[in-house]
Simulated scan of single mutants.
Amino acid sequence: MDMTGATHTTDDDRSETDEGPTTVNVGQFEFERGGSVDLDVAYETYGDPTNPPVLVAHALTGSQYVAGAAPEELGAQAGSWWDDIVGQGRPLDTREFFVVSANVPGSCYGTTGPASEGPDGEPYGPDFPAVTVTDWVRAQAQLLDHLGIDTLYAVVGGSVGGMNAIEWAKQYPERVERVAAIATAPRLDAQMLALDAIARRAITSDPNFGDGRYYGDEHPDEGLATARRIGHVQYLSKTSLEDRFGRRAAERAITAIDDPTADAFPYRDVVSYLDYNAERFTERFDANSYLYLLRAMDEYDLARGAGSDAAALAGFDGEALVVSYTGDWHFTVEQAETLATAFEHAGAAVSHRVVDSDYGHDAFLVEPETVGAPLSAFLDGGAEKAGFAPVHASLFS
């Protein structure tokens, strides 16, 4: 086993990094849709490896640094994305659990992806194989093999990380006892597919994108920034945007190219928010990786190859927690109820907790208390102890 990098443990069992990501080389990896690469999987661990293991799956542009800072070269936004959930005294208490988080294939935070050096010494770029959520799960399973972990006490994930979590129940039902799927669904709906397609076109239409072999001085930053703006709109609800920004003018000067009439009207605070986050994102993320990961999320369908969601989960006899948010229009409460029903029909014990929140999809990140309480109860006592929140019929009318 080839391992690089170093991980240190602080007093509260949250890791800090030395020179870069800790990686395991799992050898030649065959992708579900064809092609193979010599795959490095970057990961972080937290807590005592003799404790029950819990795998945490990150969201679309997340990293393995679920708690604690990421290496400086990756940027501050790459780390500490669930600090309130992972650590001593937190819902995923590192005094009780051994937490593992791995960066997925196709990303750009240490696991092999389009920006990684290929056999010819140049970045793979568009020659990197297409990736799927199933590939992510298989790569994680191989990482766990290297770590000597056969059975997971739980796998936990939010957003597309939640898809990752439920795919564990489908692909390796004998290797996982509990699944916590947060702000997710068995598949995306047509509206999200449409918006993601526009985001991808924004990147590929950038003059600097070319054919995806842009790894020189000029990158498709404008296209990537536009794609990220679309993403941020998806992550917030209509109410949240109105409450946070309304129509007020921004306090800073405009920083992005706008239409010719821009000087005649206010630079809105909501637009400034989108511009700022887009600019920061282009500093830390690879455009090809964004294309690959968006496609993996869009094409995920739990029922594929099984006939139905319940059939896909038929081999899983553990317990499941599903958490959804009333203000989330990316992955809706109705979609989450479909997932919970599939677990129930497959014979698994399941709790569906519906959180009343106007924030939107990102509530599971910015309102960690809404995750912490049901997750703690679930890890401690299973679906029965996690309980059920009422699912109102009006939500589905």
Rank of each mutant, 00 (worst) to 15 (best):
V160M: 13
E122K: 13
Q335M: 13
R295T: 14
E279I: 12
L144T: 00
P390C: 06
T45R: 03
D317Q: 13
R228L: 03
E344N: 10
F343A: 05
D127R: 15
R201S: 14
L236V: 05
D328E: 10
A115E: 11
G68A: 05
F378G: 01
D120P: 04
M1R: 11
G246R: 07
H232Y: 15
T134H: 12
R95A: 15
V323P: 01
L294R: 11
Y65N: 02
E369P: 06
H232T: 11
Y235V: 01
A393C: 09
V41D: 00
R252Q: 12
Y172N: 02
E117T: 15
V86F: 01
G210H: 07
T50E: 10
R280F: 08
Y276D: 13
F128L: 10
A389Q: 10
F209M: 06
A262T: 08
V99D: 00
D12N: 06
E177D: 09
D269A: 14
Q234I: 10
A278Q: 05
T61Q: 01
M192K: 15
P186G: 09
D48I: 02
D362F: 06
E96G: 00
G315E: 06
R244M: 14
Y359L: 11
G148A: 05
S351C: 10
E73Q: 12
R284C: 09
G161V: 01
T341L: 14
M3N: 11
G27F: 10
P374S: 08
F97N: 00
V66Q: 02
V66S: 07
F396G: 05
R187A: 10
A303E: 08
A185D: 13
P220A: 09
Y290E: 09
H58W: 03
